[in-house]
Design a protein around this nucleic acid. Structure first.
Lengths: 107, 107
DNA sequence: AGAGGTATCTTGCATTACAAGGTAAAGCCG
DNA sequence: CGGCTTTACCTTGTAATGCAAGATACCTCT
């Protein structure tokens, strides 16, 4: 499982990426992340992060009824959110390159 | 430049990797990291991290005179440090795979 | 003596993942 | 109906860690 420290700064971008793909709600995001191999991400992690991004202007949200439980809060990327996501992708690749360059030398 | 949050959990492993390659001292590590594209890593970041790893049992250190300045503190990996480094490599690759899988879908 | 580069370390702050817990709606089953 | 499970959202407090800022000290060159 991915260490909690290694997730910092990566989780936010990953969640933006999930939301870009389709309209989702918080609880669904935690399931999706698990499916991609992120392991069990606590709801105590996801909800504050979503609220932060919304307050931030990266996301907007809409409440919607559900047939099998309480209301769901669906999220959508704003223009700013899309920009953030692009910056994240560039940043992430840069970081991965730096670490790989470093690790490869010892082979 | 790589965001500060994205470094968390990555920097420790990267420093272990540098030390494995050769005996180095703290100040030199900051130069090396810059060379690999990590950007300017503050000494307020590196020294506490090194002390932590040493207290941790991952590193040992030796003071050595220098001809061009104050004494240098050289670091060496212990057996435990090598194990940590290997775990980091596995963990890091797992994380990168998860994020890449996620990002790739939108293409 | 003074300036600048080398080298180590400490203190306090900001960010962020998470455990733990709280609230509530819908369905199922006895 | 009454209790259990699942779904769904949120809050509070804690731990980890990168960093700015600053302190200390050695060496060389002018």
């Amino acid at each position: 499982m991915i260490s909690s420290q290694m997730l910092k700064g990566v989780l936010e971008g990953s969640i933006l990426a999930i939301i870009q793909q389709k309209e989702v709600y918080g609880y669904e995001i935690s399931q999706t992340l698990k499916g991609y191999g992120f392991g069990e991400i606590s709801e105590g992690t996801i909800y504050p992060l979503l609220l932060r991004l919304e307050k931030n202007g990266c996301l907007t949200s809409v409440y919607s009824e559900s047939k099998q439980g309480p209301k769901r809060k669906y999220y959508l990327l704003t223009e700013k959110g899309k920009q953030e996501l692009e910056e994240f992708q560039i940043n992430f690749q840069e970081m991965v390159k730096a670490v790989f360059d470093l690790l490869e030398i010892k082979k």
